[in-house]
Amino acid sequence: MSEDGQRAARRTSRRTAILHGDHVAFWDSGPEEPGDELVVLVHGIAGSAQTWSPLLAELARRREPRRFMAPDLLGHGSSSAPWADYSLGGYATGLRDLIVSLGYRRVTIVGHSLGGGVVQQFAFQFPQHCARLVLIDSGGLGREVSPALRAATLPGAEWVIPVIADRRLVDLAASVGRRLAWAGRHVPPSAKEAARAYASLADPVHRRAFVHTARSVIDSGGQRVRATNRLDLADQLPVLIAWGTADSMIPVEHGHRAHELVPDSELALFEGAGHFPHCDQPKTFTDRLLDFLDRRPPAEWDPAHLAERISEHVSFDEDGSS
């Protein structure tokens, strides 16, 4: 019997956890008897776990034995949108709580766009829980970002977004997209995912969370949160950096820069893909991700090594005071 034939069929279910009184929705995908390895998929701003559907479908087709979990971050998708901490640190803490609640100590964590910033923060904040790191068209690696995201941080954005995200305009845009598809015009999956995120802003609760989240990481000049000054601290982790070469939201140069900063990291470029390479090229992306997971075993956490690396970033001035 082939290796694929020996693998158990996968199941994908929609689940909800109540963490600290908030509902956190997530997709749970894996074999009937999942093993010890968990891969966590973290979506981008205004997105949801739905963005991982093409990847989850590929995993099911291949009967991949690892367990994958894709949550809706607070304020996104079907999760609660409370008055809460929508910073990278707040999201990272929520992920930690969900992961340990599922019974896992160390996980591979994958982040797309804003989710890339979240998982970098997770790796820095909770290194004892991070076994591998995968960044997809990630935020936090440079100043440049699309004008649309910068505009969301400007004064008065709360009143402008309801106009441009009015449900009637969203429905009209969706209708145009369907007509283009009916006429045989190809609509890239990246464009569809961006439209899905845009449509979510018609809901005032999601819109409020979007503005809070955007302002925590972006200002009028671009991204104001960066990991590049400490990204080399991830040198004990297997790191994969994936990017669509045609990304118009976050330039591919950020991926090249991150690859140079992280020793022994891997860079995977998806030619012609946009901001969502896992949607534009799901088969190729799944091939590359699973190859990385198969070749690079989970790292063990070495607190002494991390302390030594942090100390290399620090110097103290002697002021002569007694």
Score class of each variant (00 low, 15 high):
93 T>Q: 14
96 R>N: 04
104 Y>N: 12
109 I>H: 00
85 D>Y: 01
104 Y>M: 12
98 L>Y: 01
108 T>C: 09
82 P>H: 08
104 Y>R: 06
104 Y>A: 13
109 I>T: 03
91 Y>L: 07
97 D>Q: 14
109 I>E: 01
87 S>A: 09
89 G>E: 13
83 W>E: 10
86 Y>H: 07
91 Y>D: 10
95 L>V: 02
79 S>A: 11
86 Y>V: 02
101 S>F: 07
86 Y>N: 05
89 G>M: 07
90 G>L: 05
109 I>N: 00
89 G>R: 09
101 S>I: 08
85 D>M: 07
105 R>N: 13
101 S>M: 15
107 V>Q: 06
84 A>S: 13
92 A>T: 10
98 L>P: 09
93 T>D: 15
90 G>T: 05
86 Y>Q: 06
84 A>G: 10
85 D>P: 10
81 A>T: 03
83 W>R: 14
98 L>C: 13
91 Y>F: 15
106 R>I: 02
82 P>N: 10
106 R>W: 03
94 G>P: 02
82 P>M: 07
87 S>M: 08
84 A>E: 07
80 S>M: 05
99 I>C: 10
86 Y>K: 06
91 Y>H: 15
104 Y>K: 05
83 W>A: 11
96 R>Y: 00
100 V>A: 13
106 R>C: 02
90 G>Q: 01
81 A>C: 11
79 S>H: 10
89 G>L: 03
83 W>L: 15
79 S>Q: 12
86 Y>W: 14
99 I>Y: 02
96 R>F: 05
78 S>Q: 14
107 V>Y: 01
102 L>Q: 15
105 R>L: 10
84 A>P: 05
87 S>K: 07
85 D>S: 04
